[in-house]
């Protein structure tokens, strides 16, 4: 297989052009019942300033992927194969102390549950400051308290919070404010890549929109690449440049947001978009038949074949489709496009 996939494209230009390149990443959980392949051969590449959204049902491996990108995969999970290039450096090979330096500095996380992601017994400003302090390369360059205070206030202002918030404890903040604090922490060292793992879950719709706008503004200011993980297609459509669809640990389709919504290629993406409620026309609500597979016993061949309406007998249940570029900027893994090459 020598088609021009993201992986091969990445290898050629991993260092210069891209902020983040993921190559055939596999994250498995070893459980007594067997190996769970939560992320199973995902490849993608991000340029500076790009916004990529990853969507998929619960258990499709989105959050596992996000944690792997931070290299925070916890036992029994482990990265079994693949490479993650962050600014040209393969972080899967780094020792933990080096990786620690890169977190927040190069790659930052905007967490899922902002409600509980702040330390309940520390004032907000100290939670911003400690990240800065622990990344001071040279002890002599440690900023003094006045300078730190100043930096905290600037960061808070950038996420739309007043300096008073710095003196507060997390429980005194609303959900939206906590999420803003989490964003202020994430941008405190101007990272190259921001991983936003469902940053708006547990927030109401109005606040969701504000948070996404703030995140977008911050990202533009830093020219950082953002990976937005979520399952809210509407939110994704408004925010992202490109969308990747995940199913059972695999990336089944990736393409520009406009094209994904108007002309989805993979049958799963099609069903996902058809299932969205529409404001203009009143129609019957359509779901996707069947259930997502358990990751312990994946279907043979294409993992989606038991639920697929365009199932090709004799092929789909035996042969796993290759993930390939089938049109310019459009990648998918589906036998329907097996003969098509970009």
């Amino acid at each position: 297989m020598t088609s021009l996939t993201a992986a091969t494209a990445a290898r050629s230009s991993a260092s210069s052009e891209h902020s983040l390149v993921v190559e055939d990443l596999r994250v498995h959980y070893d459980t007594p019942e067997g190996v769970i392949k939560a992320v199973d051969g995902v490849s993608l590449a991000l340029k500076p300033g790009e916004r990529l959204a990853l969507v998929g049902e619960s258990g499709s491996g989105k959050s596992t992927l996000a944690m792997a990108l931070m290299r925070l995969t916890k036992a029994p999970g482990r990265i079994v194969a693949g490479h993650i290039y962050l600014g040209g450096k393969d972080i899967t090979l780094l020792e933990e102390p080096e990786m620690r330096q890169l977190r927040l500095n190069e790659i930052a996380l905007v967490p899922q549950g902002a409600m509980n992601s702040l330390n309940p017994v520390m004032r907000v400003k100290h939670q911003i400051i400690d990240g800065i302090l622990d990344h001071v390369a040279d002890r002599k360059q440690t900023p003094d308290s006045h300078e730190l205070e100043e930096r905290v206030n600037r960061l808070l202002a950038r996420v739309g919070l007043s300096p008073e918030v710095g003196r507060m404890f997390p429980h005194e903040l609303s959900g939206g404010m906590k999420q803003r604090v989490a964003m202020a922490i994430a941008i405190s060292l101007s990272p190259r890549v921001i991983v936003a793992d469902e940053p708006t879950s547990a927030l109401d719709v109005v606040v969701q929109r504000q948070i996404m706008q703030t995140l977008g503004r911050l990202q533009q200011g830093l020219d950082a690449a953002v990976i937005l993980i979520g399952h809210d297609m509407g939110l994704v459509a408004q925010f992202a440049n490109r969308v990747g669809v995940m199913y059972a640990g695999k990336l089944v389709e990736l393409g520009p947001v406009q094209q994904i919504f108007t002309e989805p290629l993979h049958p799963y993406t099609k069903l996902l978009i058809e299932s969205l409620p529409n404001l203009e026309e009143k129609k019957k609500f359509i779901g996707i038949p069947g259930l997502p597979p358990t990751l312990l016993r994946l279907p043979s061949g294409c993992v989606f074949h038991p639920r697929c309406p365009s199932f090709i007998k004799g092929t789909c249940e035996t042969v796993a489709p290759h993930y390939q570029e089938v049109r310019p900027e459009r990648e998918t893994s589906c036998h329907l496009y097996a003969g098509v090459r970009a």
């Binding site: 931070m70 925070l72 620690r100 330096q101 890169l102 977190r103 927040l104 500095n105 930052a108 996380l109 967490p111 899922q112 549950g113 409600m115 509980n116 992601s117 702040l118 330390n119 309940p120 017994v121 520390m122 400690d130 990240g131 622990d134 990344h135 989490a182 922490i185």
Partner: peptide, 28 residues
Amino acid sequence: SDFMVQAEAKGLKAGRIFLRYALRNALL
């Protein structure tokens, strides 16, 4: 807890995570 994951994602030094995040909260 989420704040421990976030403390690691912030790339804090292990000693600080232990004392200021884990131990401080477990001590209550």
